[in-house]
Structures are given as structure tokens and as C-alpha cells.
């Protein structure tokens, strides 16, 4: 199959790659660009482990083609920290023990940040529904929800 040439931006850096027309963006990120932070839990859009943002929109990268990223801005979990400073959500995930095995964590962080970007003060219910597309089998979500609540508070303080 002939490759598609794509020019895009990943976590702020210009990136070019060639991929088969039917290759998912998740496979491109993981296998061609070496960004293995996004995980494949299902490949069918059901688990959210592959969550990234594309021009600011939260998407399952397993459902996007690599070719569709042409001219777009991609952000992944690898782009969340600012140098050595973790994003408040990352910090609160550690402080609240919101990860056990951690395989779901990149997806929750990306989805959680997308929520807080659009709703800085979500209720518990809003958090639970916003994260309902991300599966975690280890935690029962309790500490994840608490971490998102704590990060929301941190971000509100930062703004003041």
C-alpha cells in the first residue's frame, strides 16, 4: 500500500511521517514516533486508554487515521508536563494514589485535562460522566475522581 505523507504538530513540535492510508494515529504515535504514552486497550474506541487531543478535541487515537492528522495539532500525555514541572493533574494523580497499574492513567490524564480546560469547577457527577469513556479496572475510580477534584482546586488557585 502506498504511504501517505503527513505534516503535523505533536506536543508543539513539527513532525512529519509517512504511514499506510489505513494505519491508525495510535499506531503512528506508538510505532513510528516512539510515543508509547497512549496505550491500546481495545482498538475499538471502548476504553479510552489511547486518548489524545486533536486540535484541542479529545479523541480516541485508535479511531483516527494517521493520515487525518495532516495540518492538525496533536497533544499526548507526553506533552502534559511543562519541562520538569508536572501538570497539577499529574501531581494529584500521584498524591491521591489514583493509579494502581497505571495503564489507564495516560488516558485519564488527557481526558481529565480536557474536562478541566472546559469546565474548571466540575461537580463529582460531571467528573464521573466526563470520564465514563475511560476504563480503569484497578481502582474503582474512587481515587481518580478525588484526584481530578483536587487538581481542579489547584488550577483555580493558580489562576487567582
Amino acid at each position: 500500500m502506498a504511504g501517505v505523507h503527513v505534516s503535523t504538530t505533536v506536543n508543539g513540535d513539527p513532525v512529519e511521517y509517512v504511514c499506510p492510508a489505513d494505519e491508525s494515529l495510535l499506531d503512528v504515535l506508538r510505532d513510528r514516533l516512539g510515543l508509547t504514552g497512549a496505550k491500546e486497550g481495545c482498538g475499538t474506541g471502548d476504553c479510552g486508554a489511547c486518548s489524545i487531543t486533536l486540535d484541542g478535541q479529545l479523541v480516541c487515537s485508535c479511531l483516527v487515521l494517521g493520515a487525518e492528522a495532516e495540518g492538525k495539532k496533536i497533544t499526548t500525555v507526553e506533552g502534559m508536563a511543562d519541562g520538569e514541572n508536572l501538570h497539577p493533574l499529574q501531581r494529584q494523580f500521584i498524591d491521591n494514589a489514583a493509579l494502581q497499574c497505571g495503564i489507564c492513567t495516560p488516558g485519564f490524564l488527557v481526558a481529565g485535562k480536557a474536562l478541566l480546560d472546559r469546565n474548571p469547577d466540575p461537580s463529582v457527577e460531571e467528573i464521573r460522566y466526563a470520564l465514563a469513556g475511560n476504563l480503569c479496572r484497578c481502582t474503582g475510580y474512587d481515587k481518580i475522581v478525588r484526584a481530578v477534584q483536587a487538581a481542579a482546586k489547584d488550577l483555580q488557585k493558580q489562576k487567582k
Binding site: T36, E78, M80, I94, L99, G102
Partner: peptide, 21 residues
């Protein structure tokens, strides 16, 4: 006590390497 886990940073930055990584 409840200190931070030592593998936390790797796991919130996407650096931790799992089976398929």
C-alpha cells in the same frame, strides 16, 4: 505512612514501559 510511589512520575508522564511499549 502514605508517601508518593517511586514509579509515579514515570506512570503519569507516559514514560513507564508496559508489555507492548
Amino acid at each position: 505512612s502514605r508517601p508518593k510511589r517511586p514509579d509515579g512520575i514515570d506512570k503519569v508522564t507516559g514514560r513507564a514501559r508496559y508489555g507492548a511499549d
